[in-house]
Design a protein around this nucleic acid. Structure first.
Lengths: 221, 221
DNA sequence: ACAAGTCTGTTGTTTTTCCAACGGAAAAGG
DNA sequence: CCTTTTCCGTTGGAAAAACAACAGACTTGT
């Protein structure tokens, strides 16, 4: 478990913690580990979650498949990110989405009840952890609203432009790489792949952007 | 301020609190009140928030207007609901949305720093408040994911069906009323009003549902 | 090195949505 | 009670997206 300390130090949840803090928290929160193969489902719709999780390595997709088989990627989890926090409310019901490992992944599990039930004597960092968790959920919340704003664009073109320009802003560069292939990007934005591919090329021909595989560059007009 | 105690008792944030708890919290959290007229903006894109808020009475819409004037209702706040929690992270930047009162509304403001900084001696309820706040944000998180799943439907028809069936489930009845008029529902689902209106009538003619104004009834097929 | 499979762009057709405009019904306001 | 405004369904034409199918480039695995 010790090997995860450097990673955890860089997570938002443990931001500001020292090695000792983390080690004692790992113990206090009853942390466990589990590995998943590429393509394996970590959780399936209808299951139940009673832990807070952090992705240690690999990549996860939170996705949903409807009656007719349309796949939609609701979110992408990268190493260091927390997930499962939407289901920590008691009686919050069954999972509504699938969680799938798109690469070989390792996940850390934390006992949610031990996080919320303070143990002020044992863990000096516990109060800060609560604060960090709060900030993290808040930010995730904001991220969801952000994605909602992509999705609310009326056309594929606008969806692409708003997502790509946000991504450029986020990575602080007009050249950046996105974590999706074409099909995944289409699923993420809930549009048809071929139509999106065509729209991308149209944007390129109009001189608004350039791309090679998943590397994009936006140009001033 | 005392007059808001009965309302607050019914909110998720103060769930489980007694009158005394609430009164002492109101003081401890430095609560203030502000009223807004119908149509008035509570906050505008670009502004900054440093408080957690609860809507006491009225109705608010969190909405976004893009370059071309398309309006999108990202969320609707009803009395007792908390909002603003996505922007309480230090340095979380400017507000990205507008908040508008669609009816005459009253909003309670709470000092966010006083919520997160424990005062165990003064307020016995403080720990529970933190827990409640987590649960609330978690649920909001889940709600956002839910809305994302409506938006990810490819057609207006599927958007309507997924939203309406969820709403029926939520209200535990096949007959229910929605808090939108047609234009607002269209904005909420990010579709064209007239097209949506037509699709609704088609669904009615096919016997899937019935409606009168904002009252809907879903029929088994 | 080869075969199988995946990823991407392209094209043509079908379907759906968007848009603008209109009229009647209902609601709001004086 | 009457006027004004809002709300809602409807229509027809323009635009866009969805869909299906395919071929070439690239990957993967053996």
């Amino acid at each position: 478990m010790k090997k995860y300390v450097p990673l955890l130090k860089r997570t938002k949840l443990f931001s500001g913690a020292g090695d000792d803090d983390i080690l004692s928290m790992l113990n206090c929160l009853n942390a466990t580990v589990r590995a998943y193969n590429k393509g394996e489902y970590a959780f399936r719709q209808g299951g139940y979650i009673r832990d807070l999780m952090i992705l240690a390595e690999g990549r996860l997709h939170i996705q949903k498949e409807d009656y007719w088989g349309n796949l939609n990627i609701l979110n992408e989890i990268r190493p260091g990110e927390m997930f499962g926090e939407a289901y920590i409310v008691p009686n919050s019901g069954a999972l509504m989405n699938d969680v799938i490992a798109t690469e070989a992944s390792t996940v850390l599990f934390f006992d949610i009840d031990r996080i919320l039930t303070a143990c002020p004597s044992a863990c000096p960092f516990h109060t800060q952890l609560l604060k960090n968790m709060f900030y993290t959920i808040s930010e995730k919340n904001k991220g969801l609203v952000q994605k909602l704003s992509y999705m609310s664009a009326r056309s594929t073109r606008e969806k692409l432009l708003s997502y790509l320009s946000d991504e450029a802003k986020r990575q602080n560069s007009s050249s950046f790489s996105i974590p999706f292939n074409r099909q995944q990007l289409a699923d993420f934005l809930s549009v048809d792949r071929s139509a999106m591919s065509g729209e991308l090329c149209k944007l390129r021909d109009e001189g608004l952007l350039g791309f090679h595989k998943s590397e994009f560059t936006l140009y001033e007009v």
